[in-house]
Design a protein around this nucleic acid. Structure first.
Length: 431
RNA sequence: GGAGAGGUGGCCGAGUGGUCUAAGGCGCAGCACUGGAAAUGCUGUGUAGGGCAACUUACCGAGGGUUCGAAUCCCUCCCUCUCCGCCA
């Protein structure tokens, strides 16, 4: 959530920033009107309550003094005031509900450094690492073909048991997922505390990160228990400190978590879904930090470096995009996307988003820290995919492919995989 | 799933309808005492909203209700613990 006081105090600036993300000005004007109305009604309500409180105390004293007639008169007075109070509380509740809903649906303010723009066309490529188009003059086969040849995936049987956009990983293909998860955690274990989160969360938890209320149809919901399957470990991790106040010198708090991620991908059926490009269920290592505002810029860059290092040791060509204001996720103030080049599909695949959420998520989740004066302030959150395995998996298969169809693995994975290449053994073929 | 007990400030803990604006203790901070410290004494010590000063309102797991008045009584839910059952 954004700061509503800031909206009132500096309306032109805030509405200009939000217009960069397509929030119309008159919507914000209406909200400010509601806030004004609330302030007046809260004042009236508190006056009524103050009267009732003191009168009730007086009644107690009258009754103790056995002045029952006076007490009864006073009681009737309070009863009338109480009726007015109940009515006022009722309208106020409706008003606050309205404000709350509108507030929840407002996106975050983009960081001033974020490039301006309206769509992904306007994203800025900051740098490209290890990519040379001259390497890709001969045809590369897509990962689903190679996976089929060596039995690394079983998409048809996953479709049978579960449905489209799910997969069985098989043999060395399954082991490669484990290797990637292991790598993502072990490369970062000195700087981040490992957590394994619950994979189902309450509605409040999914609201804190910003998926609810706007994006309910993107998440799997279990009505019998009113729980949601997590779309990313960011969700339980961001609520880890919900309703808590952290000490000044406890910051930053850095966590990493392996989890399975579940996404309904409503509206994207059939779009770039061949092979592992888009799955309903995948495995991911997530990095997350709670920081003080003044730490955020440096920690954001450090996290970006942590993610880039993983791509570098895997030897994957990648590029870093600075997302423009129009392409930022709802909760983010600034986002760097990392894309690896997958020559088989001939596309850059997004494998990580490293975002700064300013205090947007911590307001929703009420995560605070004590500043140097000891006053509670909202913390900032940062998070980034440490490794989203399916697309990394796909890129490794496509990048490593040899003329004979076998797949050379980057050296960092040799020890874990127990081999330097995948495929080549007809016995591993699927049947 | 069944039966029972419980949830009060940073922590422990008293409080079963009316100065609860929540006792007391621990912790923490300041001051005094001291050569310095310990011990001791005094003072202070939550969060949020409104005025931004005095003041005022809300918060005793959450939400609703009863009442002139609720930490206290009633209802629903959440969580913790104990025992039983089931189970990887």
């Amino acid at each position: 959530m954004i700061d509503l006081r800031l909206l009132e105090k500096d309306f032109p600036a805030v509405s200009a920033q939000l217009s960069l993300r397509g929030v119309p000005r008159d919507q914000l004007e209406r909200l400010v009107g509601l806030l004004d109305q609330r302030r007046r009604q809260v004042g009236e309500r508190d006056d009524l309550r103050a009267y009732i409180n003191s009168a009730s105390k007086a009644i107690g004293q009258l009754m103790a003094a056995k002045q029952l007639v006076e007490a009864d008169t006073k009681k009737q007075e309070v009863k009338d005031k109480k009726e007015a109070l109940l009515h006022l509380e009722d309208t106020l509740r409706t008003l606050e509900e309205q404000i709350h809903q509108q507030h929840l649906e407002l996106p975050n303010l983009p960081a001033p450094e974020a490039p301006r723009g309206t769509s992904e066309q306007d994203n800025v490529i900051l740098r490209t690492h290890g990519y040379d188009p001259a390497n890709y003059t001969q045809p590369y086969r897509p990962h689903w073909e190679l996976a089929e040849q060596w039995g690394l995936l079983d998409l048809p049987r996953a479709a049978k048991t579960t449905g489209a956009m799910f997969t069985f990983y098989r043999g060395q293909g399954a082991k490669l997922i484990r290797a990637l998860v292991h790598l993502g955690l072990s490369l970062n274990s000195e700087r981040y505390t490992e957590l394994i989160p619950p994979h189902f969360v309450r509605t409040e938890t999914l609201t804190a990160t910003g998926q609810l209320p706007k994006f309910a149809e993107d998440a799997y919901h279990l009505p019998a228990d009113d729980l949601w399957a997590i779309p990313t470990a960011e969700v339980p991790l961001t609520s880890y400190y919900r309703d808590e106040i952290l000490e000044f010198d406890q910051m930053p708090q850095c966590f990493m978590a392996y989890s399975v991620c579940f996404r309904r991908e409503a509206g994207s059926a059939g779009k770039d879904t061949r092979g592992l490009q888009r799955l309903h269920e995948f495995h991911k290592v997530e990095l997350l930090k709670f920081v003080r505002p003044e730490q955020a810029l440096d920690e954001h860059q450090a996290m970006l470096g942590d993610v880039e290092r993983m791509l570098q040791v895997l030897g994957l060509p990648y590029r870093v995009l600075d997302l423009c204001t129009g392409d930022l996720g709802n909760s983010a103030a600034r986002t760097f996307d990392l894309e690896v080049y997958a020559p088989g599909v001939g596309r850059w695949l997004e494998v990580s988003s490293v975002s700064h959420f300013s205090d947007y998520q911590c307001r929703r989740g009420n995560v605070r820290y004590r500043d140097s004066q000891g006053k509670p302030q909202f913390a900032h959150t940062l998070n980034g995919s440490g490794l989203a395995t399916p697309r990394i998996w796909a890129a490794l298969i496509e990048q490593g492919q040899q003329p004979d169809g076998t797949i050379l693995l980057p050296e960092i994975l040799h020890e874990f995989m127990g081999t330097n290449r995948m495929g080549g053994d007809e016995s591993c073929r699927r049947f």
